[in-house]
Simulated assay, not measured.
Amino acid sequence: MKPLELSAANFERFIGNNQMVLVDFWAPWCGPCKRFAPVFELAAEAHEGIAFAKVNTETQPELARTMQIASIPTLVAFKNGILVHSKPGALKAAALEPLLMKLQKPVDPPSLPRRE
């Protein structure tokens, strides 16, 4: 499915309504963003269990500031509404796939010390 364009009005609701969310913070003038866009869209088509979204930092500067986006593109991931990944830089498909696989793995609960 094509990534949804998010704004300040629907960002929190979208994050809260989806178990796994990947967000691309981008701008129309950004060369690396343009190169990353097709990679992101292909991943969105291939991974139906993940909600993909985009935030245009030009039209949503307050949202970008709130998320502490300092450079673009920046890829941000949420699991169950919790920020679990945020890293700037355009990824190639070969680097995005392993990240998606890692993010989809269940998190092991912390183990408690054994009582003897």
Rank of each mutant, 00 (worst) to 15 (best):
L63C: 03
N10L: 10
E41W: 01
V107M: 12
L103N: 08
K54H: 03
G16S: 13
V21P: 08
N80T: 10
L112D: 06
A51Y: 03
P98H: 13
K79M: 07
A51H: 02
L83K: 15
L42S: 14
K92P: 00
N80M: 05
V55S: 02
F40C: 06
P110G: 06
R65K: 10
F78S: 02
I15P: 01
L75Y: 04
M1V: 13
I50T: 11
P73A: 07
F11M: 05
M67K: 04
S111T: 12
A27S: 13
M1R: 11
R114E: 14
S7D: 09
E5Y: 06
V23N: 03
K2L: 15
L99W: 06
V76H: 00
A77E: 05
L99V: 13
G31Q: 10
M1Y: 07
V76S: 00
A77K: 01
H85E: 11
P88G: 11
R114I: 04
L75S: 01
N56M: 03
A94M: 09
T57G: 03
K54A: 03
I69C: 00
A64L: 05
A8R: 05
V21W: 03
C33Y: 01
P110F: 11
L91V: 09
A51G: 04
V84M: 10
P28Y: 02
F11C: 04
P106T: 11
E45F: 06
P106Y: 11
H85D: 07
V39M: 04
P28H: 04
N17P: 02
D108Q: 14
